[in-house]
Amino acid sequence: MRNVWTICRRELYSYFVSPIAWVLLTVFAFLGGYFTYAASAFFVKDSLQSQMMGQSMPMNLNDRIIVPVLSNVAVIALFLLPLLAMRLFAEEKRQGTIELLVTSPVHDLEIILGKWLSAVLMYGALLLLILADFSFLFVYGNPDWKPVALGFVGLFLQGASILALCTFISTLTKNQIVAAAIGFALALILFVLSWATAFDSSGVAQVLSYISIVSHFDSFSRGVLDSKDFIFYLSMIFFGLFLTARSLESMRWRA
């Protein structure tokens, strides 16, 4: 466990001395802020309108602001996360530092967990920015906090599973750009798979839709904790890290 933290710490250090962490933080701060602002502006406009028309429609901060913003963030995260994971192994292979890691008295699993954990923590930092945006809603309104908390849990799990898959992709190449591109393509596929049931309700479509990573996020964002979705994300993480371990092992046999 100590080794995991040693490796994780070094990765975090590298994130923050390279532009990648700062660029992503800026992008997230900007987009998250804009989404929250736009959704709030609509909310205010709609509530003014309904007041003037004399109708009192029930309006809910959770439904009108938090759920749409979280859904948007989920999609953006899907496409930005390959940028976090692309360098994890690709850069080590390019620099030759992978030889240092695998000839040190640490287990492969510790290396993998350390690296993945660093990316997950970085992602957690990005989510904190969104949480900061939402804090205003809590100051000026009183949204229900439980669906918000669950929404973040969902976002976090979705990100962690994408990062696990992208960690695996990063072991396949020495080139970060290639790793990012493949990760991006994979994220896109996982995203559009959720459309499969829109025009087809056969068994295959159902399965494809089930694999889609975003479809499992919906229930979280609505504040529903479904063990099925929870287990889906956990098994995705396990699957990604398992592939990474196998890939690292095969790299040594082939090296």
Binding site: R10, Y13, S14, V17, S18, Q95, G96, T97, I98, E99, L100, T103, S104, P105
Partner: peptide
């Protein structure tokens, strides 16, 4: 074995950003 070995590969395994 790893505990007992110090290894310098052909290209020094250093992280340039550190």
């Amino acid at each position: 074995v790893k505990k007992r070995i110090g290894y310098l590969p052909e290209a020094p395994p250093v992280y340039p950003e550190m």
